[in-house]
Every structure is written in structure tokens, then in C-alpha cells.
Design a protein around this nucleic acid. Sequence first.
DNA 1: CCAATTGTTCAATAACTTTTGAACTAAGGA
DNA 2: TCCTTAGTTCAAAAGTTATTGAACAATTGG
Lengths: 118, 118
Amino acid sequence: MSLPHPTADQISLPIVLAVLGDPTRLAIVRYLARKEGVPLNCSKFLDLASKTNLSYHLAKLREAGVTRSEAVGTSRLITLRRDDLDKRFPGLLDSVIAAADGDSALPAVGTSDVEVSA
Amino acid sequence: MSLPHPTADQISLPIVLAVLGDPTRLAIVRYLARKEGVPLNCSKFLDLASKTNLSYHLAKLREAGVTRSEAVGTSRLITLRRDDLDKRFPGLLDSVIAAADGDSALPAVGTSDVEVSA
DNA sequence: CCAATTGTTCAATAACTTTTGAACTAAGGA
DNA sequence: TCCTTAGTTCAAAAGTTATTGAACAATTGG
């Protein structure tokens, strides 16, 4: 681990809700959930926002305890903290993601049929 | 019904999450959930915020589709829109409320053992 | 009618959040 | 070493949300 992350018990419900209440961040979390287990780097999300702005949103997600960012070379590998979130707030993440998946008006990443392998 | 409320299908996930991401509003929703079926007036929440500020937060909850406010005499009877929320975002409200109930650091209303009957 | 109760609205301010661009760091490849 | 890639940091600007007090409206009880 490289950057400051809260421990599981430091994760705060209102902060998590507020952080997920932003469409850009919700899109990031949705994509992470779909690709669970596969660590992703920031470039995956460049169609949601500028590089600088993404850095800001990804920091918010990390600081809230929603994601984990690990520095590997010049990349950040980002994963969902599903284990910790499920322990802390059972069912919350699943219901949020299911609700987001059901809403076609929300911004999304990697939703097209075409999937780039590398 | 008196004041403008969104219809069930107009309720937006990011807006609901953002609205619930405020500790004062979360406390209001929690209390409404505990007293489900019993319409409450604003005075119940006066220990959370000033009258003016409550009016603001209750309007946010109403506009997001989380609560319903009905004008009855000089009071507003406030209820949770559980039916609509459950239809739109299954499991979300329950997991949020369960998570909030598990967090003793959050502000709360009517948590004491003493319950005033009238 | 008068006063009290219940809550809203308005304008101001304070406090945050989001977005931006330019400058930066750190790693990796040619 | 130099260049590129990946992402951060910083300061400024823009936008939004929260909080306040004073003034208001509507209903109800005396």
C-alpha cells in the first residue's frame, strides 16, 4: 500500500454515501465492481473526466475507504474495498451498484459490447 | 399532497445518496424509519438543527424523493417514501438504515429509553 | 379579534466541493 | 541520458451547499 487509506472501522457511512453521490465516482465504483479482482489503472476512467479531476475523485474514493490504490511503477492499481465495505455496511454496496446498473441515465465506463483484451 | 414531490421514477440514485450523505438528514431518515407509519411533524427534529435549517434539510429530503410532506393545518406531516424507494432501489434504504443504526457516532433523534406518548 | 404555534422564504454569509491548467515527480524504455 | 507515460500537486476560479436571522404566512385556540 502506498497512499493513506482509512482502516475498515474508520470508514464512515455519511462520507461513503456522499462520495457515492457523485455520478463520476459512482461510475468508477460500478466499473470496479464489474471488473472485481482485476486491479485497474486510472487511464480506464479518462472518458469520465480529465486526468487532474480523476486524480481528485480517485483520492476522494480512497480517503472514504471505498477503494484501495496501490502504487506499482508509475501506475496506481485501484481496487474496490468490497470486503471492508461489506463487513462495515452489509448489503449497501450491492444495492447501490444494482440501483446504478438499473439507471441508464448515469454515466458509465466500459459498457460497450466491444471489450479490449489488453 | 401539498408541496412538490418527484414521482417514483424521477427519483435519482446519486441525488438520494448525496442527500443521505448528510448526518442531519440521515438522522431524520433513521427516525422516520423507526416510526414508520406514524406521520411526524418537524418539531421532532428540533434537537438536530434550528427550525430554519430543518426546513432546508426537510425540503432536500422531499425534493430528492426520500420523504413525503403533507400540509395538515399548520403542521407538515412527514413520512418516509419507503414503498417508492424500495421499488426503485431495492435493499438500499434497509442497508443504509442498518448501517446507520450500527454507528453510535452518528447524531440521532428519539434514541432514549424514555418515550413521550403524546 | 388577538396571540401563539408551525413552519416557510429571503438574503447574506460561510464553508465546502468541483474543475481547471501549469508545473511537477517518478518509473521505464530507447 | 533523454523522452515518454502515468499520475500528483498546487493555486485559482467556479459552483454548490449549509447555516443564520429577520420577516413572513397560515392555522388554531382563547
